[in-house]
Design a protein around this nucleic acid. Structure first.
Length: 370
DNA sequence: GTCCTGATAC
DNA sequence: GTATCAGGAC
């Protein structure tokens, strides 16, 4: 049997989100060994949860990589990238020794490229400060770039069995419904972190962590399947979430130069490391069409602006982008193109460098019919 | 507020 | 085709 008192000391996390000083609960904190909620969720998980995900191994590097890829990204989208990435960089040391270009090339298409840059930077910190080991606490993980409170907790729970509450999107949806916590403000978030910590058991932490995430992903979805839910009996959800307000996305537009050389392919430029598509390879661009000739000339290309092609639309979280490709005509061998580390020719063969998904699609169209 | 993309729904 | 949806860190 479980001990009657599970935690004599609060699992005081120094992650900033949970705040023991601002508790909203009135019931005793440590009255149950494992609360009923956790027991039911665990029982459900054994029969209905996901047990065969490719990162479900007790390896800190694997768990860290998976958790970072799973930030803002669904399981099905992550799986192929995870497998390719792990094959390319099988260890934290291999990752640390790779160039940023190699890392971004493997990440390209998955989005939120700051995750890849942070992962790479953190790999170098880990090999330098931990040798062949890894951080062992959630706080130490959260100190690394790209690892926040929830990711840090998931890593130590999965890799080391350390009891640490998580509050990712799935858990937040489950707990906000179960405990009727509406809103996304700091106060609501603090309340949810408190609930998350109160439900987190000290035993079977890895299983519970996966269980509560699976419950959110498989049952407590936006349109929940309450009939299949193991904790429906105690749940405060009444069939409707609080409405979310979303503001309209502003429109942005750019023109991009498609500079083709029969022998060398299409000219790409490396984007600045911050901002949209940071560090990826893209086409030379300008906001005003009138400015594009100067951008092209600055690269040492002597062509003239030719036909405008069909615009490509791409929607980001906070704005909508229209890309109008402009063919550059009469490129005479492009002898003057400066050969340096921010400019390259791309032939369109195979994988290529790290490019934003819409740029890759756009170029595939151009390179299909030379 | 700033960072993405593929899937699915209209 | 356009809109919505799914996913945390800085």
């Amino acid at each position: 049997m479980e001990p009657a008192v599970q935690r004599l000391e609060p699992q005081r996390s120094r992650l900033h989100a949970p705040d023991p000083g601002r508790r909203v609960e009135t019931r005793p904190r440590y009255s149950l060994a494992v609360d009923e909620f956790a027991l039911k969720v665990l029982a459900w998980y054994r029969r209905h949860g996901r047990h065969d995900l490719p990162w479900q191994v007790p390896d800190p590097y694997v768990r860290w990589l998976a958790e970072v890829m799973l930030q803002q990204t669904t399981v099905t989208a992550v799986i192929p990238y995870f497998q390719r990435f792990l094959a390319a960089f099988p260890s934290v040391r291999a990752l640390a020794q790779a160039s940023q270009d190699e890392v971004l090339a493997q990440w390209a298409g998955l989005g939120y490229y700051a995750r890849a840059r942070h992962l790479h930077a953190a790999a170098r910190v880990i090999t330098e400060h931990y040798g062949d080991g890894f951080p062992r606490t959630a706080d130490a993980w959260a100190a690394l770039p790209g690892v926040g409170p929830s990711t840090a907790a998931a890593i130590v729970a999965f890799a080391f069995g350390v009891p640490a509450p998580i509050l990712d999107a799935n858990v937040r949806r489950v707990l906000s419904r179960y405990h009727a916590v509406s809103g996304r403000d700091a106060r609501a978030l603090r309340t949810l972190w408190t609930h998350a910590r109160d439900h987190t058991p000290t035993h079977e932490v890895a299983a519970y962590t996966q269980a509560i995430m699976d419950l959110g992903a498989l049952v407590c979805r936006k349109a929940p399947d309450c009939a299949a839910c193991p904790v429906a009996a105690g749940c405060a959800f009444e069939g409707e979430d609080a409405p979310t307000v979303r503001r309209a996305r502003p429109e942005r537009a750019v023109f991009m130069a498609v500079i083709r050389d029969p022998a060398r392919g299409v000219l790409l430029v490396r984007r600045p490391s911050h901002g949209i598509w940071g560090g990826l390879w893209s086409l030379p661009e300008s906001v005003e069409l009138d400015d594009l000739p100067a951008v092209v000339a600055a690269l040492g290309v002597d062509g003239r602006m030719g036909m405008a092609c069909a615009p490509v639309h791409h929607t980001f979280t906070h704005f909508r982008l229209t890309i109008t490709p402009i063919l550059v005509e009469g490129v005479s061998q492009a002898f003057g193109v400066a050969e340096h580390h921010d400019v390259m020719w791309y032939k369109g063969d195979g994988s290529g460098p790290g490019m934003p998904a819409p740029i890759r699609r756009l170029l595939n169209q151009f390179l299909e019919v030379p």
